[in-house]
Design a protein around this nucleic acid. Sequence first.
DNA 1: CCAAAAGTGTTTCGGATACACCCATGC
DNA 2: GCATGGGTGTATCCGAAACACTTTTGG
Lengths: 226, 226
Amino acid sequence: MNLYNTTRVTTESHSYAITADCAIFGFSDDALRVLIVRRAVAPFAGHWCLPGGAMSDDETLEQTASRLLRELVNVEGIPIRQVGTYSSPKRHPVRRVVTTCFYALVRPEDHTPNAQKYLDDARWCKLDEVPQLGYDHSQLLADAYQALQQELQQSPLAFQLLPNTFTLKEAQEVYEAIIGEDLDRRNFRRKILAYDFLINTEEKKAGVKGGPELYRVDDTKLENHL
Amino acid sequence: MNLYNTTRVTTESHSYAITADCAIFGFSDDALRVLIVRRAVAPFAGHWCLPGGAMSDDETLEQTASRLLRELVNVEGIPIRQVGTYSSPKRHPVRRVVTTCFYALVRPEDHTPNAQKYLDDARWCKLDEVPQLGYDHSQLLADAYQALQQELQQSPLAFQLLPNTFTLKEAQEVYEAIIGEDLDRRNFRRKILAYDFLINTEEKKAGVKGGPELYRVDDTKLENHL
DNA sequence: CCAAAAGTGTTTCGGATACACCCATGC
DNA sequence: GCATGGGTGTATCCGAAACACTTTTGG
């Protein structure tokens, strides 16, 4: 057995496929959601999956994932993060496919997902209502969600799920939806305001009792905490 | 542009190589070290690199990495962790190679590294003396080290770097070497003993002033903290 | 015996948590 | 006007950090 196979690699012919799959999280109707798509063709025709696609010859996996976001929900320039790479020989029923999973957070505005070629449906599904997914995508999603939870402990990613202006209550609901437990309203407010990247717009949200103040994010300052 | 390319994948022919690279950390002579190997053949002949190898048809990437550990330092059954996957089209000068980086922690005993085919040298290099590495391996190593530091904050991985019996002083030195800063001796002792997976062997280490007590790990209990 | 390191306990501080009141708005 | 929710401040708790003395051993 040779130790370092790069030389061998250059002389052998492989035919692995390499793909990127995306867990795209959004928040709407008071629930954390993930974008899932339904396949129209084999394998796994009729099954829901995470959106994914093959890496092209001139792309990195990150660029593949970004392209998917552009095509599917029409967003550009939002950060994506690697979850992990899945390489079980049997994870794809037809041939060997190694996939890298990413997750991304998108604002609910703008993007209505479109089913495209090979797909006959796409929807924002509540995280706790996601059906069994095709391939090993249930595992990918579970890992992506865990990575998101983990990351939220350390940086205030959640604001990437909120519209341009929002109340602290809404921000808190996003946090609670992600970490899965309730937070104290006052402690949350103190903690978030201490980050110092929120700007009080001095406007109040209409139609809500109490007259909550609307905030927006100072993107420059937010960068410091990512 | 199609969104979900799996079907296309099954009909097109790709020839990407998929490899696993390992940052294998060890601790000896009061320093954190990483195993690096020197390539004897092109590309990067004469350059130091992280050990790596191609994934076989019947292996996962994790199994590839484990195989490397077995071949190179003759250790089995130690945990490995994914760092990330690197897919820049230009990262390999000859052809497209996508690699997944892992890291592992090995005890210093047993394993003297062997240079094997395609390699003419292998050594345990102090982390702060690692030369510029071939490919993008300097980046891989930096990321692996960061992942290790991150992980050590949350679980007491460091004991996988220590011999079977050790003093608390030695354990502390491993911690300090990884996180890169000094710790208070008493606070460290309290924190580590609180984990409750260390067993006092009731023996004292000879040849050292103060007569420090030797400890060993209760592996069963350690599992709970990984 | 003395220098160097190991073992032990207490105090302090800061961030996180728990908690109560008054104010603003929608109905 | 009243019920619902928003805004603010304080007491408490817990884990982390800072810190000093005694005991053991090698030389």
